[in-house]
Amino acid sequence: MSAHVVGNRFTYFLVFLALMVGTVVTVWVAEIHLGWLNLPVALAIAVTKAMLVILFFMHLKDHPKLIKVTFGAAFFFFAILVAHTLSDYLSRETRGMPTYPASGLISNQ
């Protein structure tokens, strides 16, 4: 296996165009009222754009498995961070910051 991957310049340009289209679509779709669906749609577009950058611009598509697994581990550990943090914050009786009326900084919920 080798990390020497020479990309195709035309492919780069196509990826660039796809990323631009993705940007236009994400701005356009954000103006439409979809309720709770707005966030998942925005994230789906962002993840798609991110995959294009990672696979083509950063050549992860053609990199050795060791590098793929290593970078994948970053998102695995981020998922652990999110899961464990939310299992705490979402299971509490009260949500939001505690109130400190005297400071005036966090006074209204």
Binding site: E31, L34, A46
Partner: peptide, 19 residues
């Protein structure tokens, strides 16, 4: 990678109002 971070920051910070 820096581009990658911005791809997530843009919708998460700027595009919430549309909802």
């Amino acid at each position: 990678f820096v581009d990658l971070v911005w791809i997530f920051l843009f919708p998460l910070l700027y595009l919430i109002g549309g909802a």
